[in-house]
Design a protein around this nucleic acid. Structure first.
Length: 103
DNA sequence: CAAGTGACGTAGA
DNA sequence: GTCTACGCCACTT
């Protein structure tokens, strides 16, 4: 697997503290590619199920805490998981004002 | 090497 | 507030 960037994404997601959520753009920025949000989402898209239980992909959301309609096994599942982590929701979006790094 | 794709992001209407 | 269009990066074929 030469997918170094991908591993980089997995590592970043894995480093997400519980009760906190990050956006693709935010992760991409941490990796050094502020415009590589798509590449980040792609990394999670090809995320092997083997790692799906090791990588809290459900803590990764879109800008503003929006959940994409193509999320993992279903955006509903992700939302439920986030709630189980203690994350509050604002309608269909994550309460970024509390968990989102975005102030 | 070139083209296509994709869990995105921002700007404009 | 919602939808559309373009641009960005990385990976596959």
């Amino acid at each position: 697997m030469k997918a170094g960037f991908f591993e980089r994404v997995y590592d970043a997601v894995r480093a997400i503290p519980k009760g906190r959520v990050l956006t693709y753009g935010q992760i991409a920025r941490l990796l050094g590619t502020p415009r590589g949000a798509r590449a980040v989402g792609w990394a999670l898209r090809v995320l092997p199920k083997k790692l799906s239980h090791s990588v809290p992909w459900h803590r990764v959301v879109g800008a503003g805490g929006r959940i994409s309609p193509r999320a993992g096994f279903g955006p509903l599942v992700q939302k439920k998981r986030l709630r189980a982590e203690g994350v509050r929701f604002r309608g269909e979006k994550v309460d970024v004002g509390r968990h989102g790094v975005a102030t």
